[in-house]
Amino acid sequence: MKKLFNWLGNIAGIILAFASYQILECFYFLPYQLEKMLHINYAILIVLTVVATVLVVAFIFYLYQSQLKTANEWQFNQSPHWDVRRLLIMLVGLILIVVCAYSLQILLGMTKSTSANQATLDKISLQAGGLFIPMVCIIAPICEETIFRGLFFNTFFMKETRINKWLGIVCSGFVFAYMHDPSITKFIIIYWVLGCILAWVYMTTKDLRYSILTHMLYNSLPYLLNSVSLLMK
């Protein structure tokens, strides 16, 4: 009975963490709308955004750490946290994501089309101002990796077995993909593969820092490449 209550508590934690993340997105994606709705100036909104970010990220990490204290057969998040081997795994994961994303776009004939999720993000970027890039490149990877990798494995694949590892990677990848493409278009295949690679990085390094960093670098690539192209002109 205790295990059942712990499991239900973990599920409730995932729901609360995702809901908190969705609320936080509003601060970054709808700043001017919130500014008008709350009748505050932009400077105060920025302060509220920073406070909300700290609270939400701290809350999600607290849930993750609490789960690890209850059960951690996989030995996640063990010291030392940084070493060359895991940095190389992270680099391999980043290269795989880039290669797979580009290759799948070609194979599926999607080089000239855009997913609904990306189209929405492109539209949001026009109205979010300077808060869009920090959300996409920093905050989103932290929250999404903690929820879709950390909390997910701690809840549904706690037992350290080979089957659980690979089944967890596939399932984690699909949940990640579905949240990015709930309409289940052909783009879900790309998101699924990307999610699986991020899950593989997490399960291979046993440390959330590496999948977060991989996710951050991938999301930052378009902006980094754009900056490089501008400097070369």
Score class of each variant (00 low, 15 high):
L8D: 02
N10E: 10
F18V: 13
L24V: 09
C26S: 13
Y28G: 02
Y42W: 09
A43T: 14
L45N: 00
I46K: 10
A52G: 06
T53V: 06
V56W: 01
F59W: 10
F59S: 06
Q67Y: 02
Q75I: 08
F76M: 09
N77I: 10
Q78V: 14
Q78K: 14
S79W: 08
H81R: 09
H81W: 09
V84K: 14
R85F: 10
R85C: 05
L87Q: 06
L91Y: 02
G93W: 00
I95W: 00
Y102R: 15
L104R: 04
L107P: 01
M110N: 02
M110F: 09
T114I: 15
N117A: 08
Q118I: 12
A119F: 04
D122S: 12
I124M: 09
A128V: 11
F132V: 10
I139A: 01
A140H: 04
C143S: 07
F148L: 13
G150H: 05
M158P: 00
E160P: 00
I163D: 03
I163P: 02
W166K: 12
V170P: 00
G173L: 04
F174M: 11
M179H: 03
M179A: 10
H180D: 02
P182K: 03
S183T: 15
T185Q: 08
I189W: 09
I197S: 00
T204W: 07
Y210I: 07
S211A: 13
M216S: 07
M216N: 04
Y218E: 02
L224Y: 06
L225C: 03
L225P: 01
L225W: 10
N226M: 14
N226A: 15
